[in-house]
Nucleic acid binder design. Structure first.
Lengths: 237, 237
DNA sequence: ACTGGACGACCGGTATACCAGTTGCAAGTG
DNA sequence: CACTTGCAACTGGTATACCGGTCGTCCAGT
């Protein structure tokens, strides 16, 4: 009831994120504050604040009097982003294993187990979404607000590093699903060490997978106008 | 030559940080954009952007139509902030131990060893500053840009959690100094496991120390006008 | 004396205008 | 034709003005 009013800045942020991850901008085309404001039919200030936040999150680089550009992620950086993620989400898994399991996390687990039992009944996108939710709920289940905020600050870097996903093959989605369930089992079994280890392994496999897909990163998109297909959903793995 | 021009926003940021950590504001007095702009003799926009950054960094909380306030850190949060810090700086120590030692880090080590040999010749503040530099250089020495950025994003939370320091007793400073040297030795010995372990222990001890000093957090400062004694230096432990 | 409602000071959010720096192209010059 | 030069069209950075919302205060009515 109290908060949750959406400011112009938030709308601008979501739409710009959708544009960036929709592939509208390559590393050379500037995200002009004025042009974005005009395209999104809002003032310059909310757009500016959204871009400033994206700069803080490492998604975008501002060169004064030059323009604002999407940052490119080198393969080395990619590996290092994943190490940071291992540290943070590994800690989250460890902490979550040390306290009673959240109801929401348990519900997500139930859904994942149903999916695992009859995988052919679900699309890769559905399984992927469940995985994203799993990561988010596990973070909440850690019970550490500072940790959650750290991950939130760093999350866009994960997305930027991954970037080209969204065509998870069914097979890959199932493997990922199995790993998620394995992590959850360690959490439910109150085994912090195993929970951390399985999370780290899971992420390491994700990095490996991502490195194999090292193609099509520099594709030149069609400079579409607006509404990306991406509805603003997070994708965390 | 290229970057490093200081914008109004950066000057505003530094001065506001000095004000906050100088104790000018308690949790109830708002940091008004207009009043700050007038007090710092600059426009509202740079002040606003500085406050926005401080909000991202978790130092400040914005309540629309109410005001902007310094966030208070609960003791539980404090422990969790330190766990995140252990994860990040522990990783930094581990990575730094896996690569050739930086020249700057070695120089800092030399200085710290001189201090350790004849501690009575140095003030606690000098030793503390060397420790801060050690943490920063170790982060650089990790060679991971993403890790450095994660820490940079989270650093103000460390400071906010610690907050009341700056009167390190000589004895405590020496103990901390010894721990820093121990970490450095593990790094120089190319022992990632020991480096991480010693860093984690070091931070755990820092948390313990901080929890003992759980006094005077809610003091009501004298609402001074401007220039804090704090010159804008970071303090990392 | 107490209570309720209106007014005014203050808040952050947003829009608009102007500034200085950068860049690329085009016109002028050898 | 190659090169210089300067203008014009951008960029982000900053200032100022205005908006709706919040809250304390003060006065009117009880």
């Amino acid at each position: 009831m109290s908060a949750s009013f959406e400011f112009e800045r938030d709308r601008a942020y979501n739409r710009i994120v959708a544009l960036i991850f929709g592939g509208t901008y390559d590393a050379a085309t500037p995200l002009s504050e004025r042009k974005l404001a005009q395209a999104l039919d809002m003032g310059r200030m909310p757009v500016r604040e959204a871009l400033r936040q994206l700069e803080q999150e490492g998604v975008v680089e501002v060169r004064p009097a030059r323009g604002t550009f999407v940052r490119s992620v080198s393969p080395e950086d990619l590996a290092e982003v994943y190490r940071v993620r291992e540290a943070l989400e590994g800690l989250a898994a460890e902490l979550a294993a040390g306290r009673p399991t959240t109801g929401a996390l348990a519900a997500c687990g139930t859904r994942m187990r149903i999916m695992a039992r009859d995988a052919s009944a679900f699309t890769a996108a559905e399984i992927d979404d469940a995985g994203t939710e799993f990561h988010n709920l596990l973070m909440e289940a850690s019970g550490s607000v500072p940790l959650s905020e750290a991950v939130r600050l760093f999350r866009m870097r994960f997305r930027l590093a991954f970037h080209l996903p969204r065509y998870f093959a069914q097979e890959i989605a199932q493997e990922t699903l199995a790993e998620h369930i394995a992590i959850l089992e360690a959490v439910e079994a109150r085994d912090p060490v195993a929970a951390r280890a399985r999370m780290v392994d899971h992420l390491a496999r994700g990095l490996e997978l991502r490195l194999k897909l090292e193609t099509g990163v520099g594709r030149k998109p069609a400079k579409g106008t607006d509404t990306s297909s991406n509805s603003g959903m997070e994708k965390t793995q």
